[in-house]
Design a protein around this nucleic acid. Sequence first.
DNA 1: ATCACTTACTTCGGCGATCGAAGTAAGTGT
DNA 2: ACACTTACTTCGATCGCCGAAGTAAGTGAT
Lengths: 395, 395
Amino acid sequence: MAPMPPSDELPGSAAHVLELVASGSATSRADLVRELGLAASTVSTRVQELVDAGLLTESGEGASRGGRRPRLLRVVAQGAVALAADLGSHHIRTGAVGLTGAPFDIDEYTFDLTAGPEPALDVLAERLTALAERQHAAGRTVRGVGVGFPGPVDTDGGRIIAPSRMPGWHLYELRDRLADRLGLPVLLDNDANVLALGEQRAAHPTLRHLVVVKAGRGIGSGVISGGRLYRGAGGSAGDISHVRVDAAAERPCSCGNIGCLETVASGAAIAAALRGRGIAADSTTDILRLVENGEPHATTLVRQAGRDIGAVLAVVVNFFNPEAVILGGALSGAEPLVAAVRGVLYERCLPMATRELTIDAATCGPDAGLLGAGHAALREPAPADGLRSRAAGRT
Amino acid sequence: MAPMPPSDELPGSAAHVLELVASGSATSRADLVRELGLAASTVSTRVQELVDAGLLTESGEGASRGGRRPRLLRVVAQGAVALAADLGSHHIRTGAVGLTGAPFDIDEYTFDLTAGPEPALDVLAERLTALAERQHAAGRTVRGVGVGFPGPVDTDGGRIIAPSRMPGWHLYELRDRLADRLGLPVLLDNDANVLALGEQRAAHPTLRHLVVVKAGRGIGSGVISGGRLYRGAGGSAGDISHVRVDAAAERPCSCGNIGCLETVASGAAIAAALRGRGIAADSTTDILRLVENGEPHATTLVRQAGRDIGAVLAVVVNFFNPEAVILGGALSGAEPLVAAVRGVLYERCLPMATRELTIDAATCGPDAGLLGAGHAALREPAPADGLRSRAAGRT
DNA sequence: ATCACTTACTTCGGCGATCGAAGTAAGTGT
DNA sequence: ACACTTACTTCGATCGCCGAAGTAAGTGAT
């Protein structure tokens, strides 16, 4: 049950201790001893370091378990935060993420990313600078920025790769451009990946293998394997959108192929289909509203989208055998979609693969992406001055 | 390029050093220093330990690279071996596997596994005992046994789980039964998994993410992620056989569902289809022979099987983004199948996923399974007396 | 109230893996 | 023959972690 250490570190690293305390898995040194499996003396020294560094505090005493009362530990709320930005094709959402709790100081603006990278960079830099200033004013240190982008990302290079329907973005070095503008380290990743990280950290910290689907205007998925984000050989793992499905027949897709899942089951496709029937629908919000109002065409289309997504996920579930499939993104708010995915998975997958499989809608709502991006950014650079990472303990 | 350590160990473990020397990645202490990234002094001590333990020897000197000649290292061939058994639904293949090189002392018998576990155990125990005795006579120490089974396996429990078409095997504790009979530690795994391990170790030691398909009488796949075998949450990862494909329409499958890939693309299904057209075909060998002789129905069926397998693999490749897809098993000897898989993958997958993707037939032939099973068994128990594993270095 | 027991945490000495520096050994190239 | 390179060993020093023992502060039965 003990959550694994974040990133590549050995158990017992400073970041790992912080993670356990922040997530509430451990509230005292004794708890940490139990969770980490390290000697009490080792934990004591590690905690002392973190207290000295100003990242942890003692705050009162807890309930006795038959002996001396434990001295409770808390992460210093005033401590470090990361800024987070979740980019959609038609909106930008920003917020601040601390070591503990939900994102805060959240803002959302409509913005058309397809207009090209430069205007987007300007808006992002401007909004994030303002956010950073508010954090400073509140006495918090801003340690970095995490950004989720709705398209393929070269995470190592910090740039966008050939996003469909977003001319001008190919090979755009968003990470370094933004870092230059803000004077802060920036971490850039795919939106489905940061969503997966957020859902895992916040809602399912104990699960080690899960698939988080982002069903919104487009369809993507983030894969967590062995408790870590899985990117695959070329960094493009998790695509389920450009898979041929029967229902899509010969429809041309933005990827250049035909019959892709995206052409029938994405929010964009559903909205287009609705418009084709004379029903006004543009965004995923419109679709959700129509479904909630019981509009029959909308409900049918969303349910069929769920079946199509389920058909693809059935292959993924048999192959990958995850502990959970989490449905996120705007469309996951539509009950018929979730129900359809569930039905298809239970019908088509091997019993061995579904016996202990959880299939659920995401619980973190629209902030999961922010949380994941922020958490990732918060852990990326050196944890704090004077605290070396214990992963590469060379002298 | 440095191969990762086997199993869960830190770089620089005794087993890791042995692996590097055995695979030819390192031939001297200086090589090891470069591969492991450890200090020269550390490598020296580690090598000395292995020499003292009788697992490594110095054998002459290598070519100078502009300074003193390196002292070449070799694994002691007379050292330890593991026995390996690769079970098929209608055959058993056994052999011995050393730290280096190909399996040897190989035997294959036809045997009907569907007749139930007890007779199979008898035959296995008898043949492996004889094999072990031959190894002892040759002065080699037998350290363990690796077994690949053609069906779902609970690797932790060492038993078979609900194999289709193999009555009596459900929950059979093959590992412990065999271990009792032989007096040796036994490692039991799925046949596709040991095939994947064998192919990776022997042919693609540098690849970290690959999918190895076993296309024989049935269809299975072994997944290697991050250089390690991936089993998924319930241990059933890698199934691609029970996925619905168009071509299979309403055909009932042994898994209880309809339209599974297995009902059209497995060796068993192809043989049945041939018999339905009045062509005598029983085993995968028969199919291969027919294809090589240019029998049009056989070729068509095999090619179509390749397309169907490719359609499923396309989803897997987009999702998992491996570095390579390796086609193994008897049917991979049929060129049309390999060609069809290639064609479908390149046509259907995202360019990002196929740009650096290798799609090849397995190179290790029928011995890959033995090699994987043997290698796994060889590394499973304590490496050798007096050599503690450096992974769990508690005092 | 007191005594045995439990839990929580700290202090301290020690072990083992690894490092870097320095030293030895044995080459190559001019 | 001289400087330079590579290969390897020897020798403290360091660092993380451990376990034992000690301190602190509770609970619960007599």
